[in-house]
Design a protein around this nucleic acid. Structure first.
Lengths: 212, 212
DNA sequence: GTTGTAGGCGTACGGCGTACTCCTACAACC
DNA sequence: GGTTGTAGGAGTACGCCGTACGCCTACAAC
C-alpha cells in the first residue's frame, strides 16, 4: 500500500442534501420540472456540479425514490394476525408515496435497485414466513403483493376512481357499455382508502385460503 | 347551413398508419427512440407533418398504446367458471403487451383514456356481473384486477423475477436479509407465467370467497 | 379555369442532458 | 509554513428534443 501523497478538497454536499433538494424540486414542479439545472439552482450550485455526485439524471431519480422510501418504517408490526401485519406494511408504503405523489412515475423503474424496497420486502417476508408461507408460495405471495401495491398506487395517482375518467365512464353510451356506466355510478361512493384496502383484502383472503 | 365553398386537400395518412409507424419505431428503438423526428422519418414525411394528426407527442403515445390494445380480443369467453373467463381476459392483455414490451412504461399514463381499455373493462364486468358481483364489490373487484394487471406487467418487464435483481438479492448478506436471500433462491424455479398466474389466482380466490 | 382551404415542409427557438476544460481550494507532506 | 497533487466547482458548448410559425402547394368545389 502506497503512502497517500495528498488528499483532495472535501465534498461540500452530502447525498442526503442532494436527495432533499431533488425531492423539493420534484414536489414543487412535478416530474417535468425535475431537471439537473433546477436541482443545481435549488442547491445554489452549478448544474454540472451535480455530476460529482451522480453519474446521470437517472441516478438522481433513484436517490429521490430512495429518499421517499426511506421514510417507511420497516419494522414488522409485532402482534395481531398476519393479514393485519402485512396490511400495515403495505399501507406504510402507500402513505409514504402519497406524501410525494410526483414520484409515482419513477417507482417502477427504480424499485428493483432500492435498498429501501429490499428492507421492506424482508419485513414482509418475515411476516409471511411466520404465517406459514415458504418456497414457491412465498415467492408468489411477495410478488403478488408488490404487483398489487405498484399497480394500485399508480391507478390511484394517475387515474383515480374519483377523477375525470370515472365521470366520463358514467356517461358512456349505455347500450354499448351497460356495465361500465353502472359501475362508474357505483364507484362514486367508493373512496380511495376503501378501494385500496378492498383490493388488498381480496389478495390477503386468497393467501389465507392457501394456508388451509 | 351554409354551402361549402371549397374542400381541402385530403389527408394522406390515416391514424392507423401513424400508429403503426410509431409502434415500429418504439419496437425498434425503445421509448427513448420514440421521437417525432424518428416517426416522421419512418413515414417518409417531415417531422412537423405529424402535427397535422396529433396535437403533441403525448397524443402520439396514446395512439401507440391504443394500437397495442386494439389487438386484444374483448369478447368474453363463452363457457366455464367465471374465474377462468376472467383469467382469459386478463391473459389476453398480458399477451398483447408482451408482444410490445416497450409500451409498458406508457400504459399507466394512457390507460384511462383508451377506448380499448374501456371495451376490455366492459367485458370483465360482464363476467363479474354474471358471476354475482354488483355494487361496491364489483367496483373494487374491477379496480383490484386492473391494479394487479398493471403492476404485474410492470414488474415482469421492468424487473423480472428471472433478472439481475433476483440474482443480486440471492447474494444479499444473509444476516441482514435472511428471508430475501432464501426467497430469491426459491424464485429461480418460478417462471413468469407461473408467477403471474399464481398472483392472479390469489386475487380470484379472494373474490370467490366473497361470493359465499 | 378559378378559388379557398388545409396539407406538406423547413426553419428556428428554447430547454434538456451532459462532455469537456479551466481554475481553485485544501489536506498532506517537507 | 510553504509546496504539491488531487479532486471539487464553474462555465462553455454541443447535439438532441418538442414544437411554434410561415411559406408554398395540391386539390375539391364551383
Amino acid at each position: 500500500m502506497y503512502a497517500v501523497k495528498a488528499m483532495p478538497r472535501p465534498r461540500s454536499l452530502t447525498p442526503d442534501q442532494l436527495a432533499d433538494a431533488a425531492l423539493a424540486v420534484l414536489d414543487r414542479g412535478g416530474l417535468a420540472g425535475l431537471t439537473m439545472r433546477a436541482v443545481g439552482a435549488q442547491l445554489g450550485t452549478s448544474t454540472m456540479g451535480l455530476y460529482r455526485y451522480v453519474a446521470d439524471r437517472e441516478e438522481l431519480e433513484g436517490l429521490v425514490v430512495e429518499r421517499v422510501l426511506a421514510g417507511v418504517d420497516v419494522t414488522p408490526p409485532a402482534g395481531g394476525p398476519w393479514q393485519h401485519r402485512v396490511r400495515v406494511l403495505v399501507d406504510r408504503v402507500r402513505a409514504a408515496v402519497g406524501a410525494h405523489p410526483a414520484v409515482v412515475p419513477l417507482l417502477p423503474a427504480h424499485r428493483h435497485r432500492s435498498p429501501g424496497v429490499l428492507r421492506w420486502a424482508e419485513a414482509v417476508l418475515v411476516v409471511l414466513t411466520e404465517a406459514g408461507f415458504a418456497g414457491t408460495r412465498r415467492v408468489v405471495a411477495l410478488r403478488a403483493l408488490l404487483s398489487y401495491l405498484i399497480g394500485a398506487i399508480q391507478l390511484e395517482h394517475l387515474g383515480p376512481l374519483a377523477g375525470a375518467g370515472t365521470a366520463a365512464m358514467a356517461q358512456l353510451p349505455r347500450d354499448a357499455f351497460p356495465h361500465m356506466a353502472e359501475t362508474a355510478r357505483d364507484a362514486r361512493g367508493v373512496g380511495p382508502d376503501e378501494e385500496f384496502g378492498g383490493g388488498l383484502a381480496l389478495l390477503l383472503d386468497g393467501l389465507a385460503r392457501q394456508l388451509d
